[in-house]
Design a protein around this nucleic acid. Structure first.
Length: 272
DNA sequence: AGCTGGTCCTGATGGC
DNA sequence: TGCCATCAGGACCAGC
């Protein structure tokens, strides 16, 4: 499940492979994703990739005329290979370069590939990006920011983190992990958390994301990098997917509950 | 069969 | 009462 670390791992893999390279052809094989993939060949053939960026869980490939916006949804992968295998079911898009092909695959089709033309304004103004919260590695993301943003938010802190309107990139795995490391109960109302505890939470969110990126992301099911490598962070999870197993801090069993129809893992002793 | 999950959308709720 | 921000739930999928 691509959260910020997985998307960042993909971005870091693709940037050196694609920056400054010219697309020879774009082949849309299966346009049906969350929204239809537009006819990209006429937009991208002959165009050079300027940079490969990221905003939240969105990957942004910059061209002179605009940006290709890619979201991996739940099951999306972007794989770059010098000689691509024959296309299979769920292979939605090939971006062909002289030195290889970037293939987007997404069995569950929660992902998206969209084009934002420069004539329609800066990429930050795109409807999918405009409402996003702050980047967790932005220096303005600190305890004061979180504290002020939550004064009248009564929703559970874990739900708030997942929402993406305050801070982006923290999905289901890293929300459980960060809250455990910060000692905060996932169900605690966001406006009932003291600023000192938010200070700790900011530190732990960043540390968790950095460690996950360093491990190549989490591969609980199908995540792989642009080189096809699985990540290893799932092996280091303190609570996620460990219901009933001993908390690594106090040995009491890790509990699981449902918030917004998603599983939350926590330790009832270490997290208050 | 039923569960899994990221995010957009819709409709409900609540505070001022 | 009305507006706006916030919030909850549904929908979308294939694979296991």
């Amino acid at each position: 499940m691509p959260e910020l670390p997985e998307v960042e791992v993909v971005r870091r893999g693709l940037a050196p492979q694609l920056t400054g390279r010219r697309l020879t052809r774009a082949v849309v094989r299966a346009p049906r994703l969350r929204w239809p993939i537009p006819a990209l060949d006429r937009l991208l053939a002959g165009r050079e990739v300027r940079d490969v960026g990221r905003r939240g869980k969105y990957l942004l490939m910059g061209f002179d005329d605009g940006w290709l916006i890619v979201h991996l949804g739940m099951s999306g992968t972007l794989l770059f290979t010098a000689t691509p295998a024959p296309a299979q079911r769920h292979d939605h898009l090939d971006l062909e370069f002289e030195h290889g092909t970037l293939r987007m695959r997404d069995p569950r089709r929660f992902g998206a590939v969209l084009w934002h033309d420069r004539r329609d304004g800066p990429i930050e103004g795109h409807v999918l990006l405009a409402g996003l919260g702050i980047e967790p590695f932005d220096e303005r993301f600190d305890a004061d920011f979180l504290y002020r943003a939550t004064r009248h938010r009564r929703t559970a802190i874990k739900t708030l983190l997942l929402g993406g309107t305050v801070v982006v990139g923290v999905g289901n795995i890293y929300a459980s992990e960060s809250l455990h490391r910060a000692g905060i109960r996932p169900t605690r109302a966001a406006n009932r958390i003291a600023i000192d505890r938010y200070r700790r939470l900011v530190t732990e969110i960043r540390a968790t994301l950095v460690e996950a990126i360093d491990r190549g992301g989490s591969s609980l099911r199908d995540f792989v990098s642009s080189h096809g490598e699985a990540g290893g962070f799932q092996l280091e999870c303190l609570v996620y997917d460990r219901a009933g197993e001993p908390c690594r801090g106090c040995a009491s069993p890790v509990r699981v509950l449902r918030q917004q129809q998603r599983s939350t893992y926590y330790c009832a002793v270490c997290q208050r």
